[in-house]
Design a protein around this nucleic acid. Sequence first.
DNA 1: CTTGAAGCTCAAGTAGCTTCAACTCTTATG
DNA 2: CATAAGAGTTGAAGCTACTTGAGCTTCAAG
Lengths: 143, 143
Amino acid sequence: MDRALSIGALARHSGATPPTIRYYEQIGLLRRPDRRDGGHRVYGEADLKRLTFIRRCRDFGFPIEQVRDLVSVIEDVDRSCTEVRDLARDQLASVRARMAELRELEASLGLLVADCEARCAGGPGPDCVILEDLAAPGRCCAG
Amino acid sequence: MDRALSIGALARHSGATPPTIRYYEQIGLLRRPDRRDGGHRVYGEADLKRLTFIRRCRDFGFPIEQVRDLVSVIEDVDRSCTEVRDLARDQLASVRARMAELRELEASLGLLVADCEARCAGGPGPDCVILEDLAAPGRCCAG
DNA sequence: CTTGAAGCTCAAGTAGCTTCAACTCTTATG
DNA sequence: CATAAGAGTTGAAGCTACTTGAGCTTCAAG
């Protein structure tokens, strides 16, 4: 029951778009599928499975090159699942680092907005103390 | 006291790199500076101030095109500081949205790692239930 | 005067796709 | 069977915000 899928059908089932699928094929992340007489790509269940895996990894934020590693872990009988765990741990760490950066950014931006409310009366550019602060070397109002 | 700065000195004082400064010049975010006889760029305090402002906006996560707007707010006498506040508010909202995404990602990755610990004994690829889950359509272990 | 650091220009590379132009193929309907 | 819409094809360029590289010139210190 390995029903044939067009690129559009594969896209719908996997959550990728047709151009993305062609792109993955181009960079060697997906195999080159069989073609119909007219040249249209034909996919099967195995392709859907693999693409689903790839999309899921991408949703997890893994960069393409790491996805390549992960795919090879799946297909290589000799490599272990703990490799996936370790890669996921690394990924978790970088997600957390990025979140910490964003938290700082959030705090700074919040301060900037608050300062704009408190210290400026909505005056024009050159009179605004906030804009002056932003342009001054050293620490900034929300820095 | 408008001491002259080389591109390297400007870089050190502003936190940008020389290539980045040249890039900003190329895209019209910084004016074209005067040159010495040998062709080297010469900057002044005004350039440092402007670049500091730009870098700070970039650190806040504003995209280049919005920085362009912000710079014009500064230089246009008729436009008000509240514009900056509004842009900062928008930016704050998108930072928060991005953070929410990352929080979900963190939770999912955490689950993935936990599942790998709990359900797999570190077996090889084809035997790992986690890898199966990731490739299966529909919901995933940490989905 | 020599040497090494810093600067110059222009071009290409990075990630991860998306979008475009200019076609061809398939499928549904009349 | 004709036709028109929609889906598919290709290769190339575009996107963000820079970074890197090649190959050369200039500057500052000793």
